[in-house]
Design a protein around this nucleic acid. Sequence first.
DNA 1: TGTCGTGTTTTGATTGACTCAAGACAACTG
DNA 2: CAGTTGTCTTGAGTCAATCAAAACACGACA
Lengths: 169, 169
Amino acid sequence: MTNAERVKVAEPSSALADSIRASGLKVTAPRLAVLRVLDQAPHSTAERLFVAVRAELPGTSLQAVYGVLAAFAGAGIARKIEPAGSPALFERRVGDNHHHIVCTRCSAVRDVDCAVGEAPCLTPAHDSGFAVHTAEVTYWGLCPDCQAATAAAPSTLSIPAPLSNKGAR
Amino acid sequence: MTNAERVKVAEPSSALADSIRASGLKVTAPRLAVLRVLDQAPHSTAERLFVAVRAELPGTSLQAVYGVLAAFAGAGIARKIEPAGSPALFERRVGDNHHHIVCTRCSAVRDVDCAVGEAPCLTPAHDSGFAVHTAEVTYWGLCPDCQAATAAAPSTLSIPAPLSNKGAR
DNA sequence: TGTCGTGTTTTGATTGACTCAAGACAACTG
DNA sequence: CAGTTGTCTTGAGTCAATCAAAACACGACA
């Protein structure tokens, strides 16, 4: 194999590579790809990321994506959120203890800034003796699109592709 | 079949039966059993309830328990909570919009009264146009038992039967 | 620049939690 | 007491995620 033939699977020096290296993880093509996609589409499922990563790195397996995400979450460069009734979602925004609004109808997710900024931003009135270190807040409601849709056709039951993560970024 | 032989599968007049009937649901033996168990062991999984219900009503199927729980949740006489990383839990306490503390180590769950009392008890700073109707708060921390255990053996890694729902009542 | 060791990824199997569907059965209505 | 409708049983199937073993590649070191 000549040097020209060697596929440059990873770009060793980039902001993405740096943030991976800085966490003590090896820089690999799947990891760069997942991180890149995660920037463009926050609140994505592993499955969704897998499809997007495959587009630019065809050989990647779903297990690799799960592995990458577990490594990222463990290293603190990505965050896993698990809204009720939906598969786990991932985002790069970490360290600011922000929260989420989820649409009850289409499962779109948006970030909500935390007023305090650091965990736990809320403390329970009676903690039952627990040593609380995090307060996780999930708001549930109707996104603007679904408000419009239900107002236009209140009884039409126009199926809104639930859990599609539509418009979540 | 004589009248004496007829198995009284349900007690037609009881507080439990009344609360089922009041929701427009038929009163059946599995429903009474689930409701009774749910009183004694809040924050139980469907599986756990299934085992307990079986003890007093041996013929009951797991699907029946799922069906009962779905009916109860739909009718508003039980609530389903889904902490990250754990199967769904159920409780009878409804209508007061209370929250939960979950132990990071052993998954024990306790109720936390909501300071405000009605949903949404919290409103986001920027709602992104969402019509918010609920704010769900989950506190994460170490329960008293696990604080003691980690203090006594900080590095021993004594496996604490995670997700066992131990002591959750 | 080449080699080696450890951490990653691939491949394939497996689990856990839950849902769907069809037929048997039982609770409430009149 | 009989009919209707809703509920339960049985059995299959889905989805998300995890586990394990072997092939492979990153990055430290010579």
